[in-house]
């Protein structure tokens, strides 16, 4: 049995026709199911656990990167298969998973090509797309073997499924992309150096693939994991291997 979890933004008028035609296609394929709508304060884990008890085997996330992150960060350890129907803008994870945005995603879902995905673990919760530590004075220890520091503040971005986009500076027109690889988490460290009186300039990023990392700061620093902000003084990031069973497309990037 399929259960579809729609993001709240899909109520907007410009998505209604697309959603309607997707529902028609899903009915044609014989994989239509119960529809739930995600609210800001919905605990996705409780909802999914409830549905699994009622017999749901496949949970399909309908929305964008933030919907994907919001649901899987809570329910990565649920005993079910996950599907994804990317709709609207901000869908970078869908491309990594080989799922086209819009109507064609229904075909990928119906084919049920399943793969186990690795998920990141941060202190006491999962993250699937990206974790970002805002610029501050940090010390990063990788796999308990080596330590990375910078003279000034630095920003740390840990990518699991979401690719990392960066530019050398404001004038740099070329958008650089680094695709994360499965089997390891990838950390991008961008130190900030003083530029002029007021400004700070991003340095070229350092890239470290890793399985375990500890970030410590002298002062509390802001961490954003799958769009959720928190303040921490010490963050332990690990990779949980093959945690989520996911329906993926043929053109996936791993």
């Amino acid at each position: 049995m399929y259960v579809y979890i729609y993001d709240n933004f899909l109520r907007q008028k410009n998505f209604l026709s697309l959603i309607h035609s997707m529902e028609v296609v899903l009915t044609d394929y014989g994989i239509a199911g119960k529809i739930l709508r995600l609210q800001n304060y919905t605990d996705s884990k409780a909802v999914i656990d409830d549905e699994i008890k009622r017999g749901a085997k496949t949970i399909v996330i309908v929305g964008n990167d933030s919907t994907f992150g919001q649901i899987l960060s809570r329910s990565a350890n649920c005993n079910c298969t996950f599907g994804f129907l990317p709709v609207g803008p901000n869908n970078t994870i869908a491309e990594v998973l080989g799922i086209p945005v819009g109507m064609e995603a229904c075909t990928v879902l119906s084919r049920r090509r399943k793969e186990f995905l690795d998920v990141g673990w941060m202190n006491n919760r999962y993250f699937v797309s990206q974790l970002r530590v805002m610029p501050s004075k940090l010390e990063v220890v990788y796999d308990e073997r080596f330590k990375v520091t910078a003279t000034e503040k630095m920003e740390v971005i840990v990518c699991n499924l979401q690719p990392f986009f960066w530019k050398k500076d404001k004038k740099d027109k070329e958008q650089r992309v680094v695709h994360p690889q499965d089997g390891k988490l990838e950390a991008f460290i961008r130190p900030l150096t003083k530029s002029g009186w007021w400004g700070y300039k991003y340095e070229e990023p350092s890239i470290f693939p890793f399985e375990e990392m500890i970030i410590t700061g002298k002062e509390p620093f802001a961490v954003e994991a799958d769009g959720k902000m928190s303040k921490e003084i010490k963050v332990k990031i690990k990779l949980a291997h093959s945690k989520v069973e996911m329906i993926v497309g043929r053109d996936r990037k791993f």
Binding site: R145, F146, K147, V148, T149, A150, T151, E152, M154, Q181, D182, G183, K184, I189, R190, P191, T193, E203, E204, P205, S206, I207, F208, P209, F254
Partner: peptide, 21 residues
Amino acid sequence: VQDEVETVVGPSVNVEGDFAS
């Protein structure tokens, strides 16, 4: 996939310890 893994130590970054990749 493992073959393509590249580690980059950027400028103004200091690494101390057993650095292995």
